[in-house]
């Protein structure tokens, strides 16, 4: 077994990185994959809360890096899904407590035992971002259909390219179809035209996310949640399955718009 390392990142804060990490982790584990989610947002940990594992923390990432605990001791096993694990961030330290080389070492140690390592990146483009992408095989860039979030995602994609970490894959979160239809929200096609990276997920704005977060029970565990379904679709796409994108925004199906983007001459 050699795990793939996915870094969930965005540039702009609050767009849904932690939500995406928890839900994709849950959805992959529900497909029988061995998964570990690592919170690299040192000092602002909250992946544990979103995953509902806060009360089980004994050791954290910095304890492992500084030798106070072994990796196994810091790794919390989820009781709902036996293949799901989480390593929490330290609460009382800052980003300088870890270096990119630490992340590479930890991921190398985890790789043989896991299928997927998901790293929840802090916002920003500084030290914390560099730590989070150091060991990354593929970045999942989370953005919202909003000009400033897209601008930051573009910046992040540029930085990833400069670090030879590939262009990454895009998740557009918090889509509100009624706003898109009224022309008050960026369309998926507009976002893709600027960012020009592969799309892997379209997540609707969904209050079940908020409720799930408060309960520590990620939406991907709720069969009826729309956002949960969208995250489960991402997991299947990561597994190599071809899952069509449901037409979330507007009347024209996304498939048509995508094909227009891909073959601009044919349809315009």
């Amino acid at each position: 077994m050699t795990a793939k390392v996915l870094t969930i990142t965005s540039g702009k804060g609050g767009v849904g990185k932690t939500t995406a990490t928890a839900n994709i982790g849950v959805a992959l584990a529900a497909l029988g994959q061995k998964v570990v989610c690592i919170d690299s947002d040192i000092g602002l940990r909250n992946l544990d809360v979103v995953m509902g594992l806060e009360n089980r923390i004994v050791y954290d990432l910095v304890d492992v890096i500084e030798g106070r605990a072994r990796l196994r001791q810091a790794m919390i096993k989820d009781k709902r899904l036996p293949e799901l694990h989480m390593i929490p961030a330290a609460q009382t330290r800052d980003k300088t407590a870890i270096a990119p080389s630490d992340m590479i070492r930890i991921c190398d140690e985890l790789r043989p035992e896991m299928d997927w390592i998901l790293i929840d990146s802090p916002a920003g483009i500084e030290r914390g971002f560099r730590n989070a992408i150091a060991a990354s095989d593929t970045a999942l860039i989370v953005t919202n259909p909003e000009v400033s979030a897209v601008r930051d995602a573009d910046r992040i994609i540029g930085l990833l390219e400069a670090e030879q970490k590939g262009p990454g894959k895009l998740i557009i979160n918090r889509i509100r179809p009624e706003l898109v239809e009224r022309g008050d929200m960026l369309e998926t096609a507009d976002v893709l035209e600027i960012l020009a990276v592969e799309l892997i997920g379209l997540i609707p704005e969904d209050e079940s996310v908020l409720i799930a977060t408060n309960r520590g029970n990620p939406a991907a565990l709720e069969p009826k949640s729309k956002a949960g379904q969208a995250f489960r679709d991402i997991a299947r796409r990561l597994m190599g399955e071809e899952v069509p994108f449901p037409p979330l925004d507007g009347t024209e199906s996304l498939r048509n718009r995508l094909s227009r983007l891909i073959h601009p001459k044919g349809a315009s």
């Binding site: 601008r151 930051d152 573009d154 910046r155 994609i157 540029g158 390219e161 020009a196």
Partner: peptide, 8 residues
Amino acid sequence: QQTLRSGN
């Protein structure tokens, strides 16, 4: 020969 992204 590349796309110049935000911040470049």
